[in-house]
Simulated assay, not measured.
Amino acid sequence: MSTPGDYDAVRKDIVAQLKKPDYDDGSTGPVFVRLAWHSSGTYDLKTDTGGSNGAGMRYEAEGGDPANAGLQHGRAFLEPVKQKHPWITYSDLWTLSGVVAIQEMGGPEIPWKPGRTDLVDDSKVPPRGRLPDGAQGAEHLRFIFNRMGFDDQEIVALAGAHNLGRAHIDRSGFHGAWVNNPTRFSNQFFKLLLKLKWTRKTLPNGVSQFVYADPDLEEDEEPLMMLPTDVALIEDPSFRTWVEKYAEDKDLFFEDFAKVFAKLIELGIRRDEKDAIVNTDNVKGGYLSAPKKSDTATGPVRAKL
């Protein structure tokens, strides 16, 4: 067990969990990024509720949200790290795992500060419906992200996380990867979004997405795909401006993504002049690490769109 506050030791053990040959494309990195994202993206600026403080996904009220389908695997992959460092809160561990994963997959270094505390019950878990629905369009994106305090440029920068990972039909209802190398952080998502011809396709489950009909695709290979919310980024003039900028300038994208992801994982966090978090949970204050709930990964089987 490490000394409380030894976040470098935690980082090393997160890195040790990244390679998983039998999981997706051989890496847990993308699911760690999504876990950090979804644990933070419940924030509502108007009511100052939700956000990365609390780790509410440990409770069915949040963990069972169809938008979080599949994240039980990410949480389970981090349990060995939690066991070695029981002093760290889940809310710190989940956000740190996303930051570490992005950098290890070739992305930018993202500022991260500790201090989040874990809720002791589900009374402060935010209501469902605050996370984006990939089947929607541009106005839905603005509705969801403006609520958190993000503008058009920040929305597009965050969408660049789709350079990583893949969609699963038994989770989100969508199927496939956005880019050819889904475990390497880059600006390929934006390049492909602009360069390729995306054709709408209805999957066997009735869900509609966009695919690229590559004439050179082998019979056993899957076509690249885009969500309706992704295609909306090039159909909306304001969003498209930033897609074009990021497709052309990888360094600009990395710089802006680092800023907006750092902002995302700080949503709902209040700190004093020494960067100590002054948020308290609903029973006790201070840095409280919640006990482990179960040895079994639980969560919704699939998302309903």
Rank of each mutant, 00 (worst) to 15 (best):
S208H: 13
G26W: 06
L141C: 04
G173Y: 04
G98F: 04
P291L: 01
K250F: 06
D92I: 03
I88N: 02
I269A: 05
E154G: 06
K284R: 14
S238L: 14
Y59L: 06
M105P: 04
V100Y: 05
D152I: 10
S52C: 11
P204Y: 01
K274R: 14
V99W: 06
W87M: 05
L196A: 11
T95G: 07
L227K: 08
M105R: 02
N53Y: 15
V15P: 02
W94F: 15
S172G: 13
D8F: 05
M57V: 07
D133R: 15
V283Q: 13
M1N: 10
T229F: 08
G74K: 05
F32N: 07
P126Y: 12
E221W: 00
A213N: 13
G64D: 14
K293Y: 07
L264M: 14
F143K: 14
P108T: 00
D256E: 12
L45A: 15
T298N: 05
R302S: 14
I110C: 09
G51R: 01
F253T: 00
Q17V: 11
T183C: 02
P114K: 03
K113Y: 13
N279F: 09
A297S: 12
L71W: 02
A213P: 00
M225Y: 00
M225T: 05
T3F: 10
I155V: 15
G5N: 01
D281Y: 14
L45G: 09
D275V: 08
E60G: 10
R270I: 08
K195D: 14
T296M: 08
S294H: 07
D22F: 15
R130M: 09
F77N: 07
G26R: 04
K84N: 11
L45P: 02
E221K: 12
P132N: 11
H73M: 13
K293D: 10
G149S: 02
A161I: 13
K274E: 15
G106V: 01
F239N: 08
G106E: 05
Q209F: 03
P21E: 07
M57Q: 10
E109N: 11
G285R: 10
L141Y: 06
G165D: 05
D133V: 11
W87K: 01
R240N: 13
H168Y: 14
Y90N: 12
K245V: 07
N180Q: 09
G176L: 00
D275C: 05
M226F: 10
W94P: 01
G98D: 02
I269L: 10
